[in-house]
Amino acid sequence: MTNLSSLPLTKEAAEPADFKRGLKLGIPIALGYVPVAFTFGLMAVQGGIPIWIVILISLTNLTSAGQFAGVGLIIANASLFEIAVTTFVINIRYLLMSLSLSQRIVPMPLINRAIMAFGITDETFAVASMEKREITFPYMLGLISCPYFGWALGTALGALTTALLPPALQSAMGIALYAMFIALFVPPAMKSKAVFTVVLIAVALSSAFSWVPYLKNHISAGWSIIITTIGASTLGAIFFPRKENQ
């Protein structure tokens, strides 16, 4: 991690540059969000939820799996308690991401941290955590902006439209977010034996959770991601402890 003071830019000069850099990195995330949000909007409206509430959900939640599950439960007329527990369990993985980011940000006021916390998603976290430098508030604001509007725009389009994308295109877009994840973890895994091993362990564990009959039936997708992440990272820390300043 580069020490901020060793950078050529002063703090004041770095802020607009940081914001712009974040903004640029957020564009592909936003593009990936539009079709997913579109599907969400379509599904929720078809399920009988008023259009303005569907858009409100995307504006206040900004999460894919949690929203899909939550709306599925609302449509199924589940209790508020069930909705709360299910959504929470699916979102527990954000605890790990937020903890990881807490160690990577420059010192900043509580309110700034509270604001950027809202924008932590699987994708913004993935991109931010690959930053070589410490993460600044303008950078995070920039990074979050496009995905936030992309998510809202996609939801609105899906909620307002009755026509579907051609099914072939819809299916193809379904793989976009995963391709993005691959682009983020494959190159570092090729450079480091430790990261490669952690990735392999994670793939093995998450496969076990979705294919081994007992685990498949008893562990939800949300818990599977959490247990896999903790398991693979712990093994990584045990077998490949990192030296200071590495």
Partner: peptide
Amino acid sequence: PFIKSFLYYIPYAVLAAMTFP
């Protein structure tokens, strides 16, 4: 150092877990 290493590996583990299968 243990927790720092643990946190360092989290992004890779979480991305791999979410991608496959």
